[in-house]
Write a protein that binds this DNA or RNA. Structure first.
Lengths: 270, 270
DNA sequence: CAGCATTGTTGATGTAGATTAATTTGTTGT
DNA sequence: ACAACAAATTAATCTACATCAACAATGCTG
């Protein structure tokens, strides 16, 4: 069973690259800078993961026409805020984002994290308003896809329609896994599962699945997993002591992926 | 409103004392039995809530052509099981369903409940396999919509495409609310929120928002909300003692909706 | 690079809700 | 109508995680 699960998403691991630690790939420039606003979908290195998947050349070109490549966002900038009118969905080009809702008392709860190649904003489609706020966790860039145009184009390109249904279906399936996680996993199980999830999402964009930087704070993780900062911190230390991971501030190395899987699999073994 | 309601279907009325309380049907249908397999979308009393919404007459007719109205399901029958090949989504015509996943240890966790007019099975779209099992909670009937045909038709009818995007978007938004609920609400807040949610879903199909039967067990509710049966039971009793609700086994009356809303709204007021 | 805010760690204590267990009530099949 | 079973309640105890508190790194900013 494949957590990342977009159909046909195989075969993206191009050559094992130097596992220099990067978040969402900044450092390397070459011809294609990830923050560069002038990349077309056709030349984007994420095009096999993102919307263009399963589209042919001419179709990709049509998609290109409606994509707006906005200026990069600085750390902490908002993509949109709760209750803003829904206009677009966004594809993460580089960097990372979190979305969150504020309770009446001002307490935020994180509802999701987004890495390169992932789609943000689908929660607004039904109500025509975004139901959460979304903020970049680091210097990031995104592609904006005006939804009405995406709909129109989907109508013309059955492949795109099919794929967007799949993206939304994937989001639904993922959210239900989180439902299960939150309603029945212990703190350690949640944390292990979270790390494994990040790992495969990094792998998806050809980054190391065993060594990565956490773009979010412990507090973000806690809010996402329904735990306090202190618990997250304690669990990470304890996973390290047990030899499953190596933590150094935001730097994480998964030393025993199978061990982590085992923690998750043994849920409610009572 | 005296809504003894459902002609020809005693199965919907639990017990013998209060024949007013029914599940899964609305008040005013005199001629159309909710379990009847021969209702067309055009004549279905749910057609303004379900897929046909926003379609015109001829479009509804086309939708009708692809909808399969299967035989009713007895209580406890499965619509599909986890890992079955995904083929269709389903619209609840009458009755109710729960979906759940089994942990390796056999412990089930409920991931959702479905009432008339709601769509089941979208979690399978991406991976082409259902990611949960879904079972009827009472004698129920459904409309099966083969997904490949729905896609084809959506391609021809922009209204349908638009609406189905909206249905999926709604599911995503709803799942995220549950994420917040599970990650930050107390047992009492979760339960109050759950009751209010049911209330508005019943209202949507023209049933009383203040008096209804719970189609699911306490245990189902607990698994859904991440609580134990005992806690659910205790909270219900306590809400009753405080005058917010009146409980009699599966029979629920919300006596102070604003009070319940207040419980939910005051979350994490710390 | 000094100074302050943010983020992260660690320990001591409290508590919401789990667990265990016993009892009552409701449901089902014959 | 009566066993046999499933669902719901209630009470006593236990525990995983929250809360509270103190402190140590880290990272910005002028």
């Amino acid at each position: 069973m494949n957590a990342t699960g977009i159909p046909g998403d195989g075969a993206l691991v191009r050559g094992n690259r130097d596992p220099k630690l990067t978040i969402g790939t900044d450092a390397d420039s070459g011809k294609i800078c990830p923050h560069n606003a002038n990349v077309s979908c056709a030349s984007c290195r994420l095009n096999e993961l993102c919307l263009p998947i399963a589209l042919n050349k001419s179709e990709i070109h049509q998609l290109d026409e409606i994509v707006e490549r906005n200026r990069p966002l600085k750390k902490g900038e908002h993509l949109y805020r709760q209750n803003d009118a829904f206009k677009s969905v966004y594809a993460v080009r580089s960097g990372s984002f979190k979305s969150y809702v504020l309770s009446d008392s001002g307490q935020g709860r994180v509802t999701g994290f987004f890495l390169p190649g992932e789609i943000i904003g689908m929660d607004g489609i039904a109500s025509k308003r975004y139901s959460n706020s979304t903020q970049s966790l680091e210097h990031s860039s995104i592609c904006e896809i005006p939804f009405s145009q995406l709909e129109k184009l989907s109508h013309e390109l059955p492949n795109l329609q099919h794929h967007f249904f799949a993206i939304m279906g994937n989001e639904i399936a993922k959210d239900q896994q989180i439902h299960t996680l939150l309603s029945s996993y212990s703190a350690e199980e949640r944390t292990a599962s979270f790390l494994l999830g990040l790992s495969s999402r990094y792998a998806r964009v050809s980054l190391s699945p065993t060594r990565f930087l956490l773009p979010m704070t412990r507090s973000d993780i806690g809010e996402y997993l329904g735990l306090t900062v202190e618990t997250v911190s304690r669990i990470l230390t304890s996973l390290q002591k047990k030899g499953f991971i190596q933590v150094n501030n935001r730097e994480i190395e998964l030393k025993d992926i199978d061990g982590l899987r085992h923690i998750v699999a043994s849920c409610s073994s009572s």
